[in-house]
Design a protein around this nucleic acid. Structure first.
Lengths: 122, 122
DNA sequence: CCACATGGGTCTATTAATTAGACTAGGTCT
DNA sequence: AGACCTAGTCTAATTAATAGACCCATGTGG
């Protein structure tokens, strides 16, 4: 174990709700979880599926999600390597309320786009 | 109108859901909306209430939320100035599914904290 | 009359986060 | 031998966020 971990995973937010929401409320976590919803995906599949995420951020996001128990990471010792990511029970459970939010976004995005245009005109 | 707007508000995300969620999925938007839930708040009240947000980010976040129609901004031409922020119907409507997510976070944060400790031990 | 406080910001300089792209490993295929 | 595969990591360059100084007009205290 020659090198220090580059990022420590300790996290001491006094508010547990903010602690949870700050973690999954970053740019990518929810998108990764939604992409994993249909089933197991490999690293590069996630890259392709999401399209505009960088390797580093996908790697870090998956690491966080794994740490918090949202996904599992399974390595198959083959060559070339194969690593599969899959939602846990917790991950699926999270996507239930999240799905309600996605539905909200889906049914209100026109209203929002409209508000944005109006604001820009003035 | 001598100076260009420093940040353009155009935003052309091909996926409308990501367009909406990316906007409110930043570090502060949800927190600001939740803080406005009980009722009208002034700028510095929001600062104090949230505690660890910078003026600039609060200003920018409120501007985005106003642009997207989540909050209204009312200026009273007094001295010293008074500016009140208040949720719109859309803002309140958004907080309904969001509240479900907050509840989820509240009831699962122990499980998550546990997973995080386990991960760090290994 | 001068100094200071006030609220809601903006501007700037420093620090942190994100990105793009090069690089690695061991094995298969030509 | 040389090229290719995946799942990352490392570094350098770009971008975003923060802290703190500053601004405006007016009201208050001395």
């Amino acid at each position: 174990m020659p090198n220090q971990p580059l990022e420590s995973f300790e996290y001491d937010n006094p508010c547990p709700i903010r602690d949870v929401l700050d973690r999954i409320g970053d740019q990518w976590s929810v998108l990764v979880l939604l992409t994993l919803q249909p089933g197991t995906q490999r690293f590069n599949e996630l890259m392709r599926e999401i399209g505009d995420i960088s390797k580093q951020m996908l790697s870090r996001t998956l690491k966080h999600l794994e740490q918090d128990g949202f996904v599992t990471r399974t390595v198959y010792p083959e060559v070339p390597p194969r690593v599969e990511y899959r939602l846990t029970e917790l991950g699926h459970s999270f996507l239930e309320p999240m799905q309600a939010l996605v539905n909200w976004a889906d049914s209100h995005h026109r209203t929002i786009a409209e508000a944005r245009r109006r604001y820009n005109r003035e």
